[in-house]
Every structure is written in structure tokens, then in C-alpha cells.
Computed example of a mutant assay.
Amino acid sequence: MSVDFQSMHARQPNAPAVVLLSGGLDSATVLAIAKKLGYAPYALSFRYGQRHSSELDAAVRVARSIGAVRHEIIDLDLRRFVGGSALTDDAYAVPTSPGPQDEIPITYVPARNTIMLSVALGWAEALGGLDIFFGANAVDYSGYPDCRPDYVKSFEATANLATKVGVESHEESTRFRVHAPIIKMSKAEIIKTGIELGVDFSQTVSCYQANSEGLACGQCESCRLRREGFKSAGISDPTHYAK
């Protein structure tokens, strides 16, 4: 599967779009897609209490490299809600092997995408934009409930119910859209798309527990999916590993 750039072009040239940017492989590709489609991308990242800041350092590099109009990093400390995720509570260890397929993994952060998309919605409305992009993926993903197509559709409906623009608009062309362009793509397909768009994946950090230098552990689920993606794509893995 690939992105249909012909049918997904921006509503108008350089229309503002907010792009959630974690600093990882997926979100970097989504930022490049938004740029390719003709949007003026405004990158949005969060310091939410994740285990390391290396991914935010990566987000800064990626936003600059791809050409975001502006990049904001919002402080939102989810560690204050103790429990629930290995990414925000040190009492839980980051798993190094896949868990049962019918269980949501401990790396799921409660309501994270909903919180981040809500902030993105506020910024988009303030910018006079109608488009939000984020890197949800329902193929090579860890079973997160807020990465499913039904969730994306639901949040888009909420966006149009909860905003001045949504309430006042009577035409589909002037309503909010939430874009998840890689949601049905495999990790290999995402990587190939990113390469075609000139994404430098050596700048990205996907590891759940990268060290202060951005070196990946090579053992967590995110590292495994990333490594297998490059292998399936037939592309040399540019990831910087600690070991």
C-alpha cells in the first residue's frame, strides 16, 4: 500500500495543518507526507513524562530537516497520574518481548492520543486550519486502542462537534479532517514511503527506553518492529543502537 498523493492534496496550497511529531519513524514520515501534499505543516510534540527526552531532540531535528513552519513542544506531565503505563511510571519495566495478542500492552499510555489530538485541534482552530495529521498505525502496531481507524473517525466527528468551525460549517469541504495516512501501511511500507520523500531516518528515535544520547536499546517492542521493518523493506537500518 502507498499514499495516493493525487487524491489527498491540500484543500488549498499551503493550508495550515498540525502534525503530531513524536520524533519517531512513523511521525517523521507523516510530517513528510503532509509537506508533500501541499500543506504548511505545524509540528506539535509533547514532553509528557516519557522515559527519555531523546525522542524530543529527534523531533527538533526532524521538524527542521523536513521544513515545518513552526515546531511547538508542550509540557504535559502525565507522570502525575501514577500507574497505567511503563512509559510514564518507572515502577513498570518496559517489556522486551511481545505480550498476549488479546491484551493491551503496558506501554499504552492512558488516553494519550486523545489528549494530544485535543491540543492539536485547539492549535489548528487558532491557526485557521482544518487539518490534523498523526501517525496512527493499525497494522504493525502494539495493540493500542487509540490507533484504530474507528478511533480516528470518532475523533474527527468530535472535532466537528466541539469547535466553532465545525458547528458553523454546512459543507464537507470546510469541516475538520483528521488524517492518519499510514494507518493501513506495514512498517516496511512506511519506511519505503519515507525514503521516497527524503526522510533521514537516522535522525529519528523510536525506542521506548533510548539513552540520553538517543541510542536505542534494540530489545523493546518498538525497536523490534522498527528493525523488522527495515529488514522487510530491504533497506539498511540506520538506527543508532547502544549495543
Rank of each mutant, 00 (worst) to 15 (best):
T88L: 06
D90N: 12
D90W: 12
A91I: 06
Y92N: 03
Y92H: 05
A93T: 09
A93Q: 09
A93P: 06
A93M: 09
A93K: 08
V94W: 00
V94D: 02
V94L: 05
V94A: 05
P95A: 09
T96L: 12
S97I: 06
P98A: 08
P98T: 06
G99K: 06
P100L: 06
P100R: 07
Q101V: 05
Q101I: 05
D102Q: 05
E103W: 07
P105C: 03
I106A: 00
Y108C: 02
V109Q: 00
V109M: 02
P110T: 02
P110S: 09
R112I: 09
N113C: 11
N113Q: 12
T114Y: 09
I115F: 03
M116F: 14
M116E: 11
L117F: 07
S118L: 12
S118N: 14
S118P: 12
L121D: 14
G122W: 08
G122D: 14
W123S: 13
W123C: 15
A124N: 15
A124S: 15
A124T: 15
E125Y: 14
E125R: 12
A126N: 14
A126D: 14
A126M: 15
L127R: 10
G128C: 15
G129K: 11
G129S: 11
L130C: 11
L130W: 10
L130P: 08
D131V: 15
I132P: 06
F133I: 07
F133L: 07
F133E: 05
F133S: 07
F134G: 07
F134S: 08
G135K: 04
G135E: 04
G135Y: 04
G135Q: 05
A136V: 03
N137C: 05
N137W: 02
A138C: 04
Y141P: 01
Y141T: 01
S142R: 01
S142F: 03
G143F: 00
Y144W: 02
Y144N: 00
Y144A: 00
